[in-house]
Nucleic acid binder design. Structure first.
Length: 578
RNA sequence: CCGCCCGUGGCGCAAUUGGAUAACGCAACAGAUUCCGAUUCUGGAGAUUGGGGGUUCAAAUCCCUUCGGGCGGGCCA
């Protein structure tokens, strides 16, 4: 357990003991102990930790919070808590102040295992799959995929650090309707090459220039050999050529973006193996399907109504949702995307993943509830499927909305972004806004190399620390292990605040993992850099007496280690000089 | 019409998930510094947390209502 968690735990125990003692000696009435929390106050003059135990107990003890606080504190012993002082304040808070033992053990903890710092067993080795991006292979990836990639990959990294066994997966929709459309679009462009504009382009086809290019490429390689074959053979040949190329492109783009998947999962496998059909059979066995107008339907309304009633929602609420059933097998005999997706998520559970996380665009939110319901329906726990919804990104340059790429005249692609913006910057900046908020991605900021750019600011703090060590090495000074007495010299407010922040790293990781929110960590590390600069400005390292200098060097070393720890986790570079 | 998400100083955003005087960064104002790395720091100014009501010791957070923005609502994905 990390020092911070230890300190909180011991404090919790001490407070519980004090309440029990107060009940024994009659200062508090007999009652069940209230649930209370230990928090770190926003305002540090309120101490390093505070508890709401007295306020939380107001109801149970039927006493004013302030009186309860007095009863607790008069029975409180700080023995073994790392705190050296407490006080009551405000409406009944009890505030605690840490002693030097805490500060030196934080530094020692980090230095003993810099790479392992922040890791915990919170996730108990549970197998988690994070599925993200999963863009359609019918065209290039866009800005939304860029955001999803950064968020999903860093979320996975956070979960890994929090003690989960994490698996990253990309679901390739290489089957079904959109591939059919893809084929028709390619076919039309191909035939246009040889027969001109008399060939009509399908109304709902993919308009993109990439389709035309792919058709042209095929024509350049194989000539007009497909003009006189059946439409089906022609489409198969074109898709067989174009699809692998598109998938390869996506894989290259992801690699450029420093994203590496454990698996690229192909939807076509589910069709081939019969898994999609099996899902329909399974639902039919459970009496949850019916036929109508030549299609097979899934009783979504029934399933969700039962689920929502169980959750305590009112009938009126449910009626208002106007739930509808869904098609599993179309009139033409083809399964829908929904059916394949059920089969895919079933497959994930069957592979032993106990928690599934999907990162989806917010436009898919209507899909969330029925997907969870479908998991329940086939005998899995729909609540183990968690969907992180992500709002749209707008590109902004010079304060103005950028709609399309200057070069191609088309919507901005992931590729265009990576040509303009360093990968480090993109990965970091996409992780500065929570998934569920609309975001403006500021291109000027992303390329700027000054402290306005948070990545740069953080990397710079790291480089600066490295340079301190180099500068001291030139003077013949090398860092050494410090004694507790020396570390106890770190008493300046800037030093203590910095150490406090270092200490909260592990719990911050856990909190980010709980909320599926990696953006907490970019905020954490930016704050760390800020606190370091404050320290750097008010506390000189060089030229102080040997003991203090070494203690401050140890602190610098810890800051450097944690910055590197975060950036490495997020696959962002961490230069020693810039 | 119904549902989901969002609304916090001029701008960008946070708040340990119900806790103390709503934090931080730009921009603007007043000043200090130019020292291990491009500066950095210290002050004050600026907020009825979109509006209104409710729940309780305590609400930006939960409930109701209203306004504004985004998204979605069966043979698309």
């Amino acid at each position: 357990m990390d020092t911070y968690a230890k300190a909180v735990n011991m404090l919790k125990k001490a407070i519980t003991n004090a309440m029990n003692k107060a009940i024994e000696n009659g200062e508090l009435p007999q009652a069940e102990l209230p649930q209370f929390i230990i928090e770190t106050p926003a305002d540090r003059t309120h101490g390093d930790f505070a508890t709401n135990a007295a306020m939380a107990g107001a109801k149970a003890f039927r006493m004013p919070p302030f009186k309860i606080a007095q009863a607790i504190t008069s029975n409180l012993s700080l023995e073994g808590t790392m705190c050296e002082k407490f006080e009551t304040a405000g409406p009944g808070f009890i505030n605690f102040f840490l002693g030097s033992e805490f500060y030196s053990s934080v530094i020692r903890e980090i230095q003993s295992d810099p790479e392992g710092y922040g890791r915990s067993e919170f996730g108990s080795d549970e197998k988690v799959m994070v599925e993200f991006v999963s863009a359609n292979p019918t065209g290039p990836m866009h800005m939304g995929n860029a955001r999803g990639g950064a968020l999903g990959d860093c979320l996975a990294a956070v979960l890994d650090k929090a003690g989960y066994r994490v698996w990253r997966e990309f679901y390739v929709n290489d089957a079904g309707n959109q591939i059919e459309k893809f084929g028709c679009s390619l076919e039309a462009r191909y035939l246009q090459i040889f027969k001109g504009d008399e060939i009509e382009f399908p109304e709902d086809g993919y308009q993109g220039a990439d389709i035309t290019e792919l058709a042209q490429e095929y024509a350049d390689l194989n000539g007009d050999s497909l003009v006189n074959v059946s439409s089906e053979d022609r489409k198969n040949a074109l898709v067989g050529y174009a699809l692998p190329k598109n998938i390869k492109k996506m894989q290259d783009d992801m690699a450029k973006y420093n994203i590496y998947y454990d698996k690229w999962f192909f939807e076509s496998e589910l069709h081939k193996s019969g898994a999609v059909k099996a899902v329909v059979d399974l639902l039919t066995e459970k009496g949850l399907t019916y036929e109508q107008e030549g299609a097979v339907w899934y009783k979504n309304k029934q399933v969700l109504t039962e689920k929502l009633l169980k959750e305590g929602k009112s009938q009126k609420y449910i009626d208002n949702l106007e739930l509808k059933d869904d098609v599993l097998i179309r009139q033409n005999g083809n399964p829908t995307y929904f059916t394949a997706d059920i089969a895919y998520h079933k497959n994930k559970f069957d592979r032993g993943f106990t928690t599934l996380i999907d990162v989806w665009g917010a436009d898919h939110h209507g899909h969330v509830m029925r997907m969870k319901g479908a998991m329940d329906a086939i005998g899995y726990d729909g609540d183990k499927l968690n969907v992180v919804l992500m709002q749209l990104v707008k590109l902004v340059k010079g304060g103005e909305l950028v709609r399309m790429s200057k070069r191609t005249g088309k919507a901005i692609q992931l590729r265009d972004l990576l040509e303009e913006v360093p990968v480090d910057s993109a990965r970091f900046l996409f992780n500065t806004r929570e998934a569920n908020t609309q975001m403006d991605f500021d291109l000027d900021l992303a390329v700027s190399q000054d402290n306005q750019n948070p990545v740069y600011y953080v990397q710079y703090a790291h480089a600066r620390i490295c340079s301190i060590f180099k500068s001291l090495a030139n003077d013949g000074i090398s860092p050494r292990e410090c004694s507790s007495e020396e570390l106890a010299l770190l008493t300046a407010p800037e030093e203590r605040e910095l150490i406090n922040h270092l200490a909260s790293y592990t719990s911050e990781i856990i909190s980010a993992a709980k909320d599926y929110d990696p953006t907490k960590i970019t905020r954490y590390v930016t704050q760390l850099a800020t606190l370091f600069h404050k320290f750097y400005n008010s506390c000189r390292v060089k030229g102080e007496d040997e003991g203090l200098m070494q203690a401050r060097l140890a602190l610098c070393d810890c800051v450097r280690a944690v910055i590197k720890n975060v950036l490495t986790m997020f696959n962002i570079s961490c230069p020693e000089s810039m």
